[in-house]
Write a protein that binds this DNA or RNA. Structure first.
Length: 501
RNA sequence: GCACCCUUAGCUCAGUUGGCAGAGCAUCUGACUCUUAAUCAGCAGGUCGGGGGUUCGAAUCCCCCAGGGUGCACCA
C-alpha cells in the first residue's frame, strides 16, 4: 500500500531528520527502560488540591501546545490521558529536545502534580525522557467539550479498512475500541473462572484433524508434509471432547478457535472463538439452567448488571429464560405439524411464509428455514428453542418422550443464536446409523453433511456416560454484551483480503 | 457467490451542468512562559484507488480491474 506517498514521504523524512538531530544532541531515541510509579488515571483519582505529589509516568504524546518558552501536552497511557506542563527555564536542554518531538512519540515524565488555573489536573515536568521516537504520523483527532459537557471528537479516524488492517493505530486513536477488547478479555476470563469453579477441566484438543466433525460446515484443508496427508482445521471441538468424557473426566471444556471455510459477513469470520463444555450424568434440561446461571454470572461479574441494550433492543439475562418448542411454535404460527407433514406440504408452507428456497432440500432444512423466518426474529428476550428434528442433529440424543425430535436447545438473544446444546447421543449403534444417514446427505450434494468418524464410534462403544454438551460462540456473546453489530469489531485482526502492493 | 454504494492531501471532508483540484487539522517557517479543537502570520503539500474509453476538455460521463462497506444467499 502507501501509494501516492510523496506527502507521506515528506512527513517520514522530517521525522527521520529529527531522529538524526536528536541523536546528534546525545538523546537516545529508542530507550531501554523507564520505571513508572503512577499513571494518568491514578493521578486524577487521587489528586488532592495544593498537593504537589512527585510522580513518574510514561505515555504517548497525543496533543501538543507549544508556546515558545513553555508548553502543554497530553500524554496517553493505557489508562487514559493526562496533561503535562513544561517550562524552558526549568528543564533547559530537554525543552529544546522536546521541540523536536512529535505527536506519537513515547516519553517518560518525572514531575509533580498540580491543577492549572483552568482547573485541569496536570503534571509539572521536571524531567522529560524520550523513550521511543515515532517515525510515522498518527491520524490526528482532536477532542473538545460542548456546552453540555460532552466530549466531542473531531476528525475521528473512521476508515474501516485502515482501522482493521492497522488495528494498532485504531487502538491508539479510538479509545472506545480498546474498551471493547478489554471487555472481551474480561468476559472470557469470567467464563473460565466460572467453569473452573464448577470443577470442570480446561483441556486442549487437536486443531489439525485427519477428519473434521462436530458441526455442519465446510472445512479448511491443509497438508502435512512428513505424513504426506491432508489434514483439516477443526470446525468444532465436539468429537474430541466427548472422547475425553469417555476417558472419565468429570466435565471438560475448551475455549479456542474453530475454522469454517464459508462466507464472511457481520456475524461470520473464518476463524472464530468457541467455548465447548461437556458434563457427564447431565442432560439438556440441566444445561439450560447452567447456561442461565453462567451468562448471568458473567454479566454481573463484568458489567454489574443483567440488563443490556443491543442494537436498540432491551435484553435482560435474569432467569428464567423463555422456553420455546420448535415443533409447537411452528404449529401455532403455520398451522401444520411439521413432524407429521410430508416434504411437499412443508415446502408449500415454506413458500407461503416467504422463505427463499434456493439450494434448500430435505425436510429438516426446510423446517429450519421456516423457523428462521417465522420464529427467530421474535426471540429478543433470552430464550431457549427446544426439541429439534432429528435429521438436523446427528450428534444429539432422541427425545425421551417425543417422536422424531432430539433433546436439543439453542439459546437466542436479540434474534440471534448464541449457543447450541444437547443431551449427547451415546448409543454407538444409533450414532453409526446417524453418520451413515449424513453420508447419504453428502452423496445427495449436501456439502456440509458430517463425515463418518469410526474412531469416535469406537470410543462410544467403550461407553460414554449420559452427557450434556454445550457450545457458545464467544465472538457473538461479546458482540451482544458490548453492543457491537459487526463481528469485525470484536476481533482484533479480522480476516481481510491481502493488501495489494 | 450475487446486487448496490464508497475510494479526492498524512487524517477528516467539500468539489455546482464536464471548464485552472479546495478547506480544516497535522507538517514546515516565524511570534508566543497557564494552554487545552491553544492563538496569530506565512509557506508547502495532489498521477482525484488503478487501467482504458467518450470529449476541444474528465475528480465529474461510460467500461474493466482492485480494495472496502451494506444487503441477500450460506453458516455459528
Amino acid at each position: 500500500m502507501d501509494n501516492n506517498q510523496n506527502e507521506l514521504n515528506v512527513l517520514l523524512k522530517r521525522r527521520k531528520d529529527e531522529l538524526t538531530e536528536l541523536k546528534s544532541r546525545g538523546v537516545e531515541p529508542f530507550a531501554y527502560e523507564f520505571e513508572v510509579n503512577s499513571n494518568s488515571k491514578e493521578i486524577k483519582d487521587k489528586f488532592v488540591d495544593d498537593e504537589k505529589k512527585e510522580v513518574k509516568i510514561a505515555g504517548r504524546l497525543m496533543a501538543l501546545r507549544k508556546m515558545g518558552k513553555a508548553s502543554f501536552a497530553h500524554i496517553q497511557d493505557s489508562f487514559g490521558r493526562i496533561q503535562i506542563y513544561l517550562r524552558k527555564d526549568e528543564i533547559k536542554d530537554q525543552y529544546t529536545a522536546f521541540k523536536l518531538m512529535d505527536i506519537g512519540d513515547i516519553v517518560g515524565v518525572e514531575g509533580y502534580t498540580f491543577k492549572t488555573k483552568t482547573g485541569e489536573i496536570s503534571v509539572h515536568v521536571t524531567n522529560l525522557t524520550l523513550l521511543t521516537k515515532s517515525m510515522r504520523p498518527l491520524p490526528i483527532t482532536k477532542e473538545s467539550t460542548d456546552e453540555e459537557g460532552n466530549k466531542v471528537i473531531h476528525d475521528q479516524f473512521v476508515d474501516k479498512e485502515l482501522r482493521y488492517r492497522q488495528r494498532y493505530v485504531d487502538l491508539i486513536v479510538n479509545p472506545e475500541v480498546r474498551d471493547v477488547f478489554v471487555k472481551r478479555s474480561k468476559i472470557t476470563s469470567s467464563m473460565r473462572r466460572f467453569l473452573e469453579a464448577k470443577g470442570y477441566l480446561e483441556v486442549e484438543t487437536p486443531i489439525l484433524q485427519p477428519l473434521y466433525g462436530g458441526a455442519a460446515a465446510k472445512p479448511f484443508i491443509t497438508h502435512h508434509n512428513a505424513l504426506d496427508t491432508d489434514l483439516y482445521l477443526r470446525i468444532a471441538d465436539e468429537l474430541y471432547l466427548k472422547r475425553l468424557i469417555v476417558g472419565g473426566f468429570n466435565g471438560v471444556f475448551e475455549i479456542s478457535k474453530d475454522f469454517r471455510n464459508e462466507g464472511m459477513d457481520k456475524t461470520h469470520n473464518p476463524e472464530f472463538t468457541m467455548m465447548e463444555l461437556y458434563v457427564p450424568y447431565k442432560d439438556y434440561n440441566w444445561m439450560m439452567s447452567f447456561v442461565e446461571e453462567m451468562i448471568l454470572n458473567i454479566s454481573n461479574d463484568v458489567f454489574n448488571t443483567s440488563k443490556f441494550n443491543y442494537d436498540s433492543m432491551d435484553i435482560d439475562f435474569a432467569p428464567k429464560w423463555k422456553r420455546v418448542s420448535m415443533i409447537n411454535s411452528l404449529k401455532e404460527k403455520t398451522g401444520i405439524d411439521i413432524l407429521k407433514a410430508d416434504e411437499n406440504l412443508i415446502k408449500e408452507t415454506a413458500k407461503k411464509v416467504g422463505c427463499d428456497l434456493d439450494g434448500i432440500s430435505g425436510k429438516a432444512k426446510l423446517i429450519d428455514e421456516i423457523f428462521s423466518v417465522v420464529i427467530q426474529p421474535d426471540l429478543i428476550e433470552p430464550s431457549f428453542v427446544i426439541d429439534y428434528p432429528v435429521e438436523l442433529s446427528p450428534l444429539a440424543k432422541r427425545h425421551r418422550n417425543l417422536e422424531g425430535v432430539v433433546e436439543r436447545f439453542e439459546g437466542y438473544v436479540a434474534g440471534r443464536e448464541i449457543c447450541n446444546a444437547f443431551s449427547e447421543l451415546n448409543d454407538p449403534i444409533e450414532q453409526k446409523k446417524r453418520f451413515e444417514e449424513q453420508v447419504r446427505f453428502k452423496e445427495q450434494g449436501d456439502e456440509e453433511a458430517h463425515v463418518i468418524d469410526n474412531d469416535f464410534i469406537r470410543a462410544l462403544e467403550y461407553g460414554m456416560p449420559p452427557t450434556a454438551g454445550l457450545g457458545i460462540g464467544l465472538d457473538r456473546l461479546v458482540m451482544l454484551l458490548t453492543n457491537q453489530t459487526s463481528i469485525k469489531d470484536v476481533i482484533f485482526f479480522p480476516q481481510m483480503k491481502i493488501e495489494s502492493k
